[in-house]
Design a binder for these strands. Sequence first.
DNA 1: GTTTGACATGTAAAATTCGACAGGTCAATA
DNA 2: TATTGACCTGTCGAATTTTACATGTCAAAC
Lengths: 183, 183
Amino acid sequence: MSNDNYDEGMSLRMALLGLLTVSGPSSGYDLTKLFERSVNHVWQARHSQIYPELNKMAAGGLVVIEEEGPRGRKTYAVTEEGSRLLREWLLSAGPSRSIRDELALRAFLLPTLEPEEAVIALRDAARICEAKLAELEEIWRTKTQAGKGNFGRYALDLGMRQTRMFRDWARETAEEIERSIRS
Amino acid sequence: MSNDNYDEGMSLRMALLGLLTVSGPSSGYDLTKLFERSVNHVWQARHSQIYPELNKMAAGGLVVIEEEGPRGRKTYAVTEEGSRLLREWLLSAGPSRSIRDELALRAFLLPTLEPEEAVIALRDAARICEAKLAELEEIWRTKTQAGKGNFGRYALDLGMRQTRMFRDWARETAEEIERSIRS
DNA sequence: GTTTGACATGTAAAATTCGACAGGTCAATA
DNA sequence: TATTGACCTGTCGAATTTTACATGTCAAAC
């Protein structure tokens, strides 16, 4: 009775419910910013997708407009039903795989380049990761100081691990290809 | 002059060009199967997306229909222009990270559960990763034995690193939450 | 006072992707 | 010979996502 039709395209909805659950009542604007700073490493959405979705969710009773601020600002809050839906979705762990990773796709296609060019592309990628990592670590420092609860912390941690992993892969693969060029 | 407007929605096209480059002339049917067996861990596409895309690519001169077999089978081959486009795309490394990973999103949202439930779900996720890792390692063994060139090898390595990283994150986060429960 | 930039919300058209429908060939086996 | 199952190509409607357009408030700097 509880978990019948599992929809694929539920991710954005769940992400928003999750952010609202943790950050408390927020506006579409807030959520857009939050999205950029947190979920962005695993899922992306623009404000043009978020605003309509929030309205649909409000129509469906998953969230309610709690207050309307001065600048037309609308604050949404999760309802009992929204909370239940998120929980059910999280506990229905299927071996579902919906993955779309452009960076990994590039990696996959790299061997179609000449070895020398592949090395250049890999070194580029590693450099980009390094920059991103520095950025994330800065956020980490300011975040952990603020001590605002652990939510974004887990995601940020995951983001940093991911970036480090990719950087290392790029470096080591570049070195491997260089070795094979020399032989 | 070479690399002006970088399009986001080029991934499917590039994946197909890459597969054609490595596997040689193939039909839409072949490419669909190939997709499932290789790129699938990173990017997904159904035949209903692949067939029209191949036709568009043929119209754009990126591939040519090399021959038409008995069963209406059409064999596509990469052209000079297609080859150049793929190369340019791979060398134009933007800091763009278009990623959509449902499993990671679930993990990200787990802390919205009660700590006890989150721990259970994280352990589940870690177990799923473990299984996937075993699967990937099996592929790795058979692939490296076959010695069919490095295509797929780098991506497979990346996939294994990614899975390991995620598993570790899930485990360590579970442990951290457990510690916080006990205090 | 006016310009700039962050705040704040939306819509519309286009592209991408998915799920279902639809049709046809060929070889093997029951 | 009938049927099954792999082979092979496609289209259509719906959902998801992107890009660009569109509008307006408010505070602070200039």
